[in-house]
Design a binder for these strands. Structure first.
Lengths: 333, 333
DNA sequence: ATCCCCAGTGTAATCGATTTCAGAAGAGGT
DNA sequence: ACCTCTTCTGAAATCGATTACACTGGGGAT
């Protein structure tokens, strides 16, 4: 039923080897034959089997992309970038959603290896895991995105979370806020840990002690942001400002503030990590740390393709600088 | 390097046929052998090559998912659902973003077929295309999601767009609005066409003539919604209400209203298609048509798996009812 | 004239699984 | 003892490409 390379060879009156050479654009084929083969391909509407090819060369032209939350616009933008780059370079993307589960992540890695993917881009659910060490040792091209992997030298594309959190919290302090709460993701993922570190450093640098009561860490999802913020706002001594650790936490936090009927920044100031398209709707405008999401995805894909092309190149860590956009939600007290 | 079925066979002292049978859970293998094989698999940490398997059985356990905009939360939710169902049933998902381009869509379909996918789920960029007819005729399992394909009997999962648009526009009319504008997606996609049809029918049913000036159709993206709405609001005789045809158009429209400094619903009432998580932030609350996005994705995946299992079953069209949530943005004049 | 080299081509092995078919071993019937 | 099933197992073909290797024929050097 399906037309194979054999059919093409027969039609063109050559061997399959020649057809293969023509398709691969290899030298050592007479123009006359090349044309006959191309014609035959056209006439038969031949499309090579990627599966057969993958089996033979022991590598598919698929790259695996494992992200921790497909419903998070941050990752969506990353996916889009990776897909764009991949497609342009003749690769396709197999997308997996680890859903913040380390087990799922590991299972997907195995699955993708079983599919003989050329490489992997992953936003690791946890910083400390030996999965990546094993991958790197087995010479599997892999790059981490958004979140760092520790103790394993590998390609990474991350934002400068410590610095960005430091700056934005310092800004809150400069504007007169002292009881600054942090609604963060769990520190298993490096983003959670680093954004906390930036927060802590900023407080310390300005002589403010960290009040553990004001630090909430949970799943980087809106429900968790909602719950944490409600708790914070109901404290005896509630915060005068809230710093949220990612876009979904921000949504939850804003909902909590909304439900409590509080005003920003009069009752509580606000500064958030991650920018989103609809944020212009929030009044007053939110002070945010904007990450170059598409650029991160693009860079990760490029790093991966480079490593696939040259597996021995030294691992590279790309640190992208977020932009801090100051608006009214954090204006001076 | 990698351990193959041959290695397992050797280790267990059996043939590859037996190993294969054990893996596939087929009958006619003595328990003693079965155990030896399972042990060998364990000891060698053997994982079968999905590529080799795909080549032999002429079908991979991948399903292709082509959506028109990966950055649209509607589709994100669909992707999530499809991925959940697929994963649970032992399939993986290859995600492609057609970016509203019919060419890209066609290219991805070819690509996925080259990968021997078991089936396809697509949100078609255009209602009229013979691609799907050819697929169906070639017995390729395929289901359309969100958008209809015409002239080809195939599995589909769509919302009742005509009805929902009719109801929500009727609601605007009932609340005293007469110059109701429609900011819609192009009618190439059935969603755009059907939501317009519902709009038109509602006006007609209430003796209002459609003013072509008030109907704007463009890419279902926020820039287009923004542009269209600005134009509408700057008309000599501007609309007293706006109905938007999807979530991204809504974002753009709201931005335009915001930029013009207008109030909802005093200056212009508002009703939107698609609900989004952050909508509680919009004040006053928006009247929206909420679609069961996850359910749509789930249903589509289930239909596809059923068709894969039984290619001859009659095509099924699943019509899901959206929910209309009335809020203050459309309150009576 | 002889030899060498190289561009151009084909034959056949190979990748790692599944599956057909043939045959062995043992149970049961006559 | 012989035949017939049934159950179990393995040898080998197969899927559709890529590629190592062998071979051919002609041009250039000697």
């Amino acid at each position: 039923m399906t037309v194979t390379i054999e059919d093409v060879a027969q039609r063109a009156g050559v061997s399959t080897a020649t057809v293969s050479r023509v398709i691969a654009g290899k030298p050592y084929v007479r123009d006359a034959l090349r044309i006959r083969v191309l014609d035959a391909i056209q006439e038969l509407n031949y499309r090579p089997s990627r599966v057969a090819r993958s089996l033979r060369v022991q590598r598919s032209s698929i790259i695996g992309l494992i992200i921790s939350d497909i419903q998070n616009p941050f990752f969506t933008s990353v996916v889009r970038a990776v897909e764009d780059v991949a497609q342009q370079r003749g690769f396709s993307v197999m997308l997996c959603n680890s859903d913040e589960s380390t087990d799922k992540e590991a299972a997907y890695i195995d699955l993708l290896l079983d599919e003989q993917v050329s490489g992997l881009i992953v936003s690791p659910t946890s910083t400390n895991t030996d999965i990546y060490r094993r991958l790197v040792e087995a010479n599997v091209p892999v790059v981490a995105i958004d979140r760092r992997v520790e103790n394993t030298p590998m390609d990474m594309v991350v934002g400068d979370n410590v610095q960005a959190a430091y700056e934005v919290v310092s800004h809150l302090i400069a504007n007169g806020y002292r009881r600054i709460a942090a609604v963060l993701g769990v520190p298993d993922a490096s983003t959670g840990a680093e954004r906390y570190e930036g927060y802590e450093r900023a407080l310390n640098a300005h002589g403010i002690e960290v009040d553990p009561e004001l630090v909430r860490q949970g799943m980087p999802r809106s429900e968790s942001g909602h719950r944490s913020t409600l708790q914070l706002l109901q404290l005896q001594n509630p915060p005068d400002a809230i710093f949220t650790g990612n876009n979904l936490l921000t949504i939850g936090a804003l909902r909590a503030i909304d439900e409590m009927g509080l005003r920003v920044p009069e009752d509580v100031a606000f500064a958030a990590f991650d920018e989103m398209e609809w944020m212009f709707l929030v009044k007053p405008a939110l002070t945010v740390v904007a990450q170059p999401t598409y650029a991160m995805g693009k860079k990760a894909a490029e790093l991966l393709l480079q490593r696939i092309a040259d597996p021995s190149r030294p691992p590279q860590e790309v640190l992208l600088q977020p932009t801090i956009k100051v608006h009214e939600s954090s204006r001076a007290k």
